[in-house]
Write a protein that binds this DNA or RNA. Structure first.
Lengths: 182, 182
DNA sequence: GTCCATTAGTTGGAAGTCCTACTATTTTCA
DNA sequence: TGAAAATAGTAGGACTTCCAACTAATGGAC
């Protein structure tokens, strides 16, 4: 992530002689958009760019938390979907539609989870094209440990007030609904 | 993206006989978090998951808009950074620190932009370890066309009200600042 | 002045995403 | 019922990100 990147070409001098960004780069970009005559697009640009950067920050925190457990966020999401499923197993297709990812991404994640002994593939009893993916005991235990870690290190310390947290979820829910997400 | 994923295993019947998600999967997950005794983490989980999904949606729109022009968003960001720079050129290091990405990501993007004839690498006159990256006329023209396209197709139609847009930027700015972004 | 630590950038590898194209089933309907 | 269309999943490729390890050049300390 290179958060501490610095250089003499931009930014201000800090107390210890290092340099740091003085202004918010996204706000600077927004200003440049307005100055270029693109005022109508400035807020949208700022929102999209903020979203990209916030995603990067949060994902990095999540991945750092999961790394010691040997899973990635993509695979963790699959584990939790299975964890919460009634029968304890789901077809690949359902996993993909719930997580809203491409079928090949599901294949990829399940391959790795299977290699790690966390899930099993078995043929669907009613559709021989499909597989049922199920948690192994190891997978179930890892899902639990990973959730404890994420809850403690990220979800309970998200870097936002409770109020901001709810506002964020509300706004993004509208964005997702508008995009046809549910 | 498989937005229209559907299946008999979940969701409701819609008018035309297809099926669709009836409930917001993120809200469902939030409920499951609370029911599992993880109330303190539920809002954080919902926020993080919403952010991931919103990012995916928005990035897909941006990439779809840029695709006809032959650039990706990662490369577009580099072009715009150069576009707005005073001298018209920047060292790799600065590009990385402004975009907050790993040096190897900059190398990757600049390699491809250079191959496409959109930027040039020249050695830094005062530091022979460094390169100065500059827009070519073609690169400048493409940056302009790409911005026009993004403004019209994404930034001016972000799928949120002006009010929500500003709220989103405000909340994400606090998140970014809290993470030490600027 | 010379040596060593730091810095700029690249290479190679792992992992995620998506897309296109493909196989193997299932379903539709004429 | 039998051919065509739709569906589930996989293979290979392009692209992004990051990390670890590396080269080359700069600059500070003695």
């Amino acid at each position: 992530m290179d958060v501490n990147a610095s250089s003499p070409y931009d930014g201000r001098m800090t107390v210890d002689g290092t340099r740091d960004l003085e202004f918010d780069p996204i706000d600077q970009a927004r200003t440049q958009w307005v100055e270029s005559g693109w005022s109508d697009a400035a807020d949208g640009m700022a929102a999209v760019t903020s979203l990209m950067r916030a995603h990067q920050i949060v994902l990095a925190r999540v991945e750092a938390t999961l790394k010691p457990l040997g899973v990635t966020f993509a695979r963790y999401e699959v584990l939790m979907l299975l964890w919460f499923s009634k029968r304890g197993s789901l077809p690949m297709k359902i996993i993909g539609s719930r997580l809203q990812v491409h079928p090949t991404s599901v294949t990829n994640a399940v391959d790795r989870l299977e290699d790690a002994g966390l899930v099993t593939r078995s043929t669907h009893p009613e559709d021989r094209r499909a597989y049922l993916i199920a948690l192994t005991p190891t997978g179930r235990e890892l899902a639990e440990r990973a959730t404890k870690a994420l809850n403690a290190e990220v979800f309970e310390q998200p870097g936002l007030s409770s109020r901001d947290l709810r506002t964020l979820v509300d706004v993004l829910t509208r964005l997702r609904r508008q995009a046809g997400d549910f």
